[in-house]
Design a protein around this nucleic acid. Structure first.
Lengths: 341, 341
DNA sequence: GACCGTTCTGGGATCGTGCACAGAAAAGTC
DNA sequence: GACTTTTCTGTGCACGATCCCAGAACGGTC
């Protein structure tokens, strides 16, 4: 068994066939489900596989089947922000593990520059991948639509902006999450509730704002546009947003910030203005990333089920590879109470 | 050019040959470097490639060459900690981009459970990968050695524990970084300098401690074992470590904490004990992760050049694929002064 | 026994490349 | 011009699997 220094030629299906005393065809059938194989042949082949340590050559298989049995995980701009977002890690890990359970390798592709985008699109449309899991914070990104048009199965993380799109997606229920948070703030007796929204050219930004307005209207609390500002999910934007709110509506007693990272910035700004959290101003975040638990005080937030999102993305993609139609999945969120409210 | 709804058969080398009026062999030669091809033939082939939109079928190529032209990025346990470490992201992104420049896809493999480890080892040794970039916080991990013995080119991130190993690695100069930090603390007039080391079964832990002791000895400051405690790089360990130091040596005036994450915990513990940072106790970290800049006060730390580390890992691996011998690369660190010292 | 349908098996064709080889064409040498 | 060397080209084969098809083996029915 000494094999140091170089790789030996791996056993092929032919070696297994010879060892088992059957033909290649029979071995191939065993490998692909075992239909139309007699019990003794099945056992002989399995024994031969164990004995030889045979592993299928995926390249040879792909060449004839036309499938690659691998999936791409595509992250499009803006990398800096997203890549440092802990939520991204959870997604990537979840997808990798869900695919591993099906023995499907994941190819990581980062499209930062325009040049990289072209390269990657070329790679994908060349048929090197069976499907693509797409993550982009900018949901207006046309790449999902382009790949879909080229016949490549795609599942996007987060709702796409264009509503007519037939691209599969998996997302958390932004609107409902926002409703829960605002109801929670109302239940604490707060009435001057500000909001720092996400970018309003993305469904995440729009839907969370819609939920906010909906609940306030329901409760008979009027909507004061001075209580509404927007940011881009970054920490700095949260800080600036809170400052703007304080200037426009100094009497606010709560803020719903549309991401935990922005909430961190908001905490800084509010504290600097001398407001106590949560006594003077209650602060609610969105995401439930680790940032939320490590903040001081720990953030009340809306949990996005990233582990389930990744699992669903893989499930939907594999279903599509199996011939099913594109699907949209919306997963429920959950209010997580901590000390900031 | 309408191709909605399904993939069309991609053009093959044969289509290109027919289009260019040459044979398959000539096209193949153009694809692989263009040697022994006449100028007119070269141009005709290139034109045909552009016209047909031809992209090489990697599976067919791999089948005949025996190479896969793809590389694995393997992360072994313990995932939870490492995966949430922002440094990991920087490594992963750096490797992906460096490989993309050579048109080499990266396959992400996470080995959490023992079952996953077996699966992945099987996958790799089956020849589905040309080489492996290995990241593990536990440097005693035998997987590097195993893969190496199986003839798979490996480059490890961080120095391996076993010194006799012939596995390539790329690491920052831990010892020198520690020396710089301790010299810096000495230059501030501090003499009672504590240390929270990393795990002492890893070179990172051992070497940083060695640097610490070396500089103190050089400076004629004795080594007080009450000033030395160790942790596991986690935030909680930093907090506990600082508490132990405060109990064992209440007169300390500086702490060198062997990771930024631990330093965050140490800040909490020191502040709770009423020590002002940096007036009473100066705190130095290690890594220069984003945690360092976001801490209050921002941490003085030793910068590990993760972007260069990832680039070197890829360079060394590709060199090895090209037939060169395994290599060890140690990169210089840099002191980053901020407000915690 | 003749016939049928189902289960099971083996071998040839095939996927799209790279490589070895043979031979043509061009270039250099005496 | 005859010869060698170098450059250039096309063809057959191989890589390792799946797929298809023909036909054998089996069991049941009339």
């Amino acid at each position: 068994m000494n094999n140091a220094g170089g790789r030996r030629r791996p056993p092929t299906i032919h070696d297994v066939a010879r060892e088992a005393g059957v033909s290649r065809g029979t071995v191939s059938r065993v490998l692909n489900g075992g239909h139309y194989v007699s019990p003794p042949a099945l056992e002989a082949v399995n024994a031969a596989i164990r004995k030889t340590g045979y592993v299928v050559n995926r390249h040879a298989r792909s060449l004839i089947t036309g499938r690659s049995d691998s999936v791409g995980f595509l992250l499009t701009e803006p990398q800096e922000r997203f890549f440092e977002d802990p939520n991204f890690n959870v997604l990537l890990r979840g997808c990798t593990q869900a695919l591993a359970a099906h023995d499907i390798p994941l190819l990581l592709m980062l499209a930062g520059t325009e040049d990289e985008r072209r390269r990657i699109k070329r790679f994908i449309t060349a048929g090197h991948l069976d499907g693509v899991l797409l993550v982009t914070s900018h949901s207006a990104d046309p790449v999902a639509e382009e790949l879909h048009k080229a016949g490549v199965p795609v599942v996007q993380c987060g709702k796409p902006m264009r509503s007519g799109s037939k691209v599969s997606y998996v997302a958390a229920d932004d609107r409902d999450g926002a409703r829960d948070m605002v109801r929670h703030l109302l239940s604490l007796g707060r009435r001057r509730i500000g909001i720092v929204t996400g970018p309003l050219d993305s469904p995440g930004g729009v839907d969370r704002l819609a939920g906010y307005k909906e609940v306030l209207a329901e409760a008979g609390v009027g909507i004061d546009e001075r209580l509404v500002v927007s940011g881009d999910y970054s920490r700095a934007a949260g800080e600036a947003g809170a400052e703007r709110l304080l200037a426009q509506a100094p009497d606010l007693d709560a803020v719903f910030v549309a991401s935990d990272l922005m909430a961190l910035g908001a905490l800084t700004a509010l504290r600097r203005a001398g407001r106590r959290i949560p006594e003077d101003v209650a602060v609610g975040g969105f995401d439930d990333s680790i940032a939320a638990t490590e903040a001081t005080p720990p953030l009340t937030t809306i949990r996005q089920p990233y582990d389930r999102i990744s699992a669903e993305m893989v499930r939907v993609l594999l279903a599509q590879l199996g011939g099913e139609d594109p699907a949209a999945v919306i997963l429920p969120t959950e209010l997580v109470r901590r000390e900031s409210t």
